[in-house]
C-alpha cells in the first residue's frame, strides 16, 4: 500500500485517496478550434511513463482536494507531492534510469 503525502493533511494510507491519472493535461484554450486528432490527443492519448511520473490524486476520504504527486512507476517511490498550480519538486538524479 502506498503512503501518500497530502499537501494539506499529511501522510495517509492509499485507501483514503482516488487516483486521477496523468497530471498537467491542460484543457484546450479554444475547444472549437480542435480537429478530431487533437481531441483524441487531449481525451485519450497518455504518457504512461515508465519511471518518474507526475500524476493527480484526490484525497476523497479526507480533505477532498486534488493535488499532484511525483511517483516512480517502477519502484513506487514517491518523490513528493505538491498543490495544484505549484512547481513540481526536483527529480532525483537517477530520474528516468528505472528502465
Amino acid at each position: 500500500m502506498l503512503n501518500i503525502d497530502c499537501p494539506w493533511c499529511g501522510k495517509r494510507h492509499e485507501t483514503e485517496f482516488r487516483y486521477g491519472g496523468e497530471a498537467h493535461i491542460a484543457r484546450p484554450e479554444d475547444p472549437a478550434a480542435l480537429d478530431d486528432t487533437e481531441w483524441a490527443e487531449f481525451l485519450f492519448m497518455r504518457k504512461n511513463t515508465k519511471g518518474y511520473f507526475a500524476e493527480r490524486w484526490l484525497h476523497n476520504n479526507g480533505c477532498r482536494r486534488w493535488f499532484n504527486v511525483i511517483r516512480n512507476t517502477v519502484t513506487h517511490e514517491i518523490v513528493g507531492s505538491y498543490k495544484m498550480g505549484e512547481t513540481p519538486p526536483k527529480l532525483p538524479k537517477s530520474a528516468g534510469g528505472a528502465k
Binding site: M1, H13, E14, T73, H76
Partner: peptide, 13 residues
C-alpha cells in the same frame, strides 16, 4: 490497482 505501474505488484487492500 488504480494507479499506473510497471512493478508487477500491487497494494494489499
Amino acid at each position: 490497482d488504480s494507479f499506473n505501474s510497471y512493478a508487477q505488484r500491487g497494494s494489499f487492500h
